[in-house]
């Protein structure tokens, strides 16, 4: 078995041995369900789609993903197991990827467990299942980006609390970057092109497009490049720590 798979397996196991996994799954599923019906007006809209469900996901991930990723490296640094892990024959890359994939698969599982809502909407009406599938894909990609951010920032510190707050902060900035209020704020001060660039950084814009069923390569690339970028930054941070 490759070191990546071994690290991934160990991480996944540690989620389920500690209560982390169960607490996360319960909270995620309960919140995803109730927010869809109460805040999203699922019935009142009288439309056979899952828009109110997916619209809540960025805000759910904002709270829950940092809770998963905060311990990723901070805990290892604090407990001394980082020294054990990094003196085993694997590269920093393999360690980072193993941990990232474990978290991404786990969120994938949580997302998969929301399937009753798909069944519900399918039972109540005749939704476009392609759009819903695209919504799930977009949501999973967005979760991956959040996880990559969390993985990077967890490598920055020994404190899980600091890792949580930093991750949530960066994520909220990325979510809000495209909102009109934020853009209006920059409108006067910055050149038009820069404001445009900020708008394009917004996670919401790209996620909305995908979850409406528009699979644009640019949106997919946005998420893939973000993930890779944050993971590279995380690996560089870990490497920097070894020289400091």
């Amino acid at each position: 078995m490759s070191p990546i798979a071994a690290v991934m397996r160990r991480e996944l196991r540690s989620y389920f041995v500690t209560p982390v996994a169960y607490v996360f799954l319960v909270i995620f599923l309960v919140l995803a369900g109730t927010l869809t019906f109460y805040a999203g007006d699922f019935y009142e809209r009288e439309q056979a789609d899952l828009q109110p469900f997916f619209v809540m996901h960025p805000w759910l991930y904002l709270i829950l993903v940092p809770a998963i990723t905060m311990r990723m490296w901070a805990e290892e640094a604090k407990g001394g197991t980082l020294e054990l892990l990094l003196t085993l024959p694997l590269t920093l890359w393999q360690a980072m990827l193993g941990k990232f994939l474990a978290a991404w698969l786990f969120i994938g599982l949580a997302l998969g467990l929301t399937f009753p809502i798909w069944i519900t909407v399918d039972y109540l009406g005749a939704p476009d299942n392609g759009v819903i599938a695209a919504g799930y894909l977009g949501s999973w990609l967005m979760a991956g980006t959040f996880i990559a951010i969390g993985a990077c920032l967890s490598a920055l510190t020994r404190s899980q609390v600091v890792a949580f707050i930093l991750t949530a902060l960066v994520c909220v900035l990325l979510i809000l970057a495209g909102q009109p209020q934020v853009l209006d704020f920059f409108q006067g001060a910055l050149p038009r092109k820069l404001v445009h660039a900020i708008a394009h950084l917004s996670m919401l814009q790209h996620f909305d497009a995908i979850s409406r069923g528009v699979l644009d390569v640019r949106d997919l690339l946005y998420f893939l490049i973000s993930m890779i970028g944050w993971l590279i930054a995380g690996v560089l941070l870990l490497d920097l720590k070894r020289t400091r």
Binding site: R10, R13, S14, V17, T18, G79, G80, T81, E83, L84, T87, P89
Partner: peptide, 16 residues
């Protein structure tokens, strides 16, 4: 690969 190493304090994953 050629090295067996016991770090100071013998760290290991406590939940395993």
């Amino acid at each position: 690969r050629a090295l067996g190493y016991l770090p100071e304090g013998a760290p290991s994953y406590g939940e395993m």
